[in-house]
Write a protein that binds this DNA or RNA. Structure first.
Lengths: 205, 205
DNA sequence: AGCATAACCGAACACGATGTTCGGAAGAGA
DNA sequence: TCTCTTCCGAACATCGTGTTCGGTTATGCT
C-alpha cells in the first residue's frame, strides 16, 4: 500500500521533503530535482508506485545514486516532493477563490476538477489518497460556520472521500467528460446531501 | 498509499489466495492458516501493512518459513486470504437481505456498518481500499434498474467512495458512535444525493 | 494400535533492493 | 580564472524475499 505519507492508514508525519539544504538557486540542483520528479511520475504511471524501484528512477533520470540520496531520504520523500508542488498550487487557487456564499458549500469543486484536468500526468500518478486530507480539511473548515445537524467531521469525510473517489475514477477512465461537466454532476450530488446535513435555517438558499 | 491488492492504484488481479492444494481437512493446515492470518492482522494494526515483514509474521505465529510459502505465495496472498473470508461474509449478508424497495437504494448501508462493527479487528487492519470494489459493484447493480439522469458509474463511485471513507473514519476513530447511528447518518446523506441523480419518476417515494 | 504419508521444521542459500562511504571529476557562480 | 558546491561511479554492508534440502512430527485411515 501505498505507503501513505499523510494518508489514512496509520503513520502520519508532517514529513519534510528534502534531506539537506542544497542551494536551491544552483542550476544543477534544480535540474536534478526536476529530472527525478519527472522520472518518478512517468514510472508510476507505467508500473504503479509500489513496483517502481529507486534504481529505475535513477536510470530514467540519468542521475547518480549518490546524488539521489543527497537530495531525498528515500522514494517516499521524492514522491512527497512531487505532491507538495501540486498541493501548494491547488491550495493557492482555492484560497484565491475567496469565501463562497454560505448557501453554496460545494463551489470549490469546480476549481478542483479544473486543476486535475490541467495536471493530468501528475494526478494520474499521485493516486487518490493524498488528496483526501486536503479536501477533508477544506470542506470541514468550509462547513464549520454553519449550524450542523450531523457531526461536521462525518459530513466532511463523506463528501471529501466521495470527491476523491470520483476524481480517481475520472483520472483512471482517461477524462471521459470535461472538467465542467464533472464538476456540475458532483455539485448536483453534493449539494442535496450537504443541505440535508445542515440545519434548515440555511436550507432555503 | 496504501497497498492496494485489488484497489484503485493500478495492479488489479483477481488473485487466488492459496498456492497449492494443501488438504483443507487436515487439522494442521487449518491451524497454520489461522495462526498466520491472526498474526498478520495483529501486526498490521500495530505497524501498518507495509511495515510488517514476513519474518515477523512467522515469529508471531510460530510457524516455519518453509511452511508459510507452502501455503501462500507471499504476504499479499496471506492478506488477501484474510479479506476473502470477510468479503464472503459480507456478500452473503447483503445477498440474504434480498432486494430492497426501489425507492430506498441506500438500505444495504445498515448491513455494512453492522458487519464492520462485528469484525472490528479485521476492519482495522484491512484498510478501506479493499471494500471499495465490493461496495461499488453492489451500488452500481443496485442502481442499474432505475432510469438515471447522471451516469450510473459516477453515482456509484461517488457514494461508494463516500461510504468507504466514512467507514474508515469510523474505524480509525475507534467506533465513537453505534453502527445504527452511523448507518442512519449515512443514509441521510446518501438518499438525497441518489434521489437527485435519478429521474423524478421515482423521486416521490 | 500401527502405518503410510502429508505437513511441518530449521538452516542455508541466491537474489534483489536499499542506503552509505569514498576519492575524484566537473560544473556553477564570483 | 579560481574556489566551492554538486555530481559521479564503484564498492560495500544490510536487510527482506522466496527457494531448496534432508530430516522430524503429526494426522488420517485402516
Amino acid at each position: 500500500m501505498l505507503i501513505r505519507v499523510n494518508g489514512r492508514s496509520g503513520v502520519s508525519v508532517p514529513y519534510r521533503t528534502e534531506v539537506a539544504t542544497l542551494a536551491g538557486n544552483d542550476r544543477r540542483v534544480r535540474r536534478t530535482r526536476r529530472l527525478l520528479q519527472q522520472a518518478l511520475v512517468a514510472l508510476i504511471t507505467e508500473r504503479g508506485y509500489e513496483r517502481v524501484t529507486v534504481q529505475e528512477v535513477l536510470d530514467r533520470a540519468d542521475v547518480g545514486r549518490t546524488t539521489f540520496y543527497a537530495h531525498f531520504r528515500d522514494k517516499d520523500a521524492l514522491f512527497a516532493s512531487c505532491f507538495d508542488d501540486l498541493r501548494a498550487d491547488l491550495e493557492r487557487e482555492l484560497a484565491a477563490m475567496g469565501g463562497s456564499p454560505p448557501d453554496d458549500p460545494a463551489s470549490p469543486i469546480g476549481v478542483i476538477f479544473e486543476h486535475a484536468h490541467r495536471n493530468q500526468p501528475v494526478y494520474r500518478a499521485v493516486g487518490a489518497a493524498h488528496l483526501h486530507d486536503l479536501l477533508f480539511s477544506a470542506l470541514r473548515d468550509h462547513l464549520a460556520g454553519h449550524g450542523a445537524r450531523l457531526p461536521v467531521e462525518i459530513v466532511a469525510e463523506y463528501h471529501a472521500s466521495a470527491l476523491v473517489g470520483v476524481l480517481g475514477w475520472w483520472v483512471r477512465a482517461g477524462f471521459p467528460h470535461g472538467p465542467e461537466a464533472m464538476a456540475r454532476m458532483c455539485r448536483e450530488m453534493t449539494q442535496p446531501g450537504v443541505m440535508a446535513a445542515l440545519t434548515e435555517i440555511h436550507a432555503g438558499g
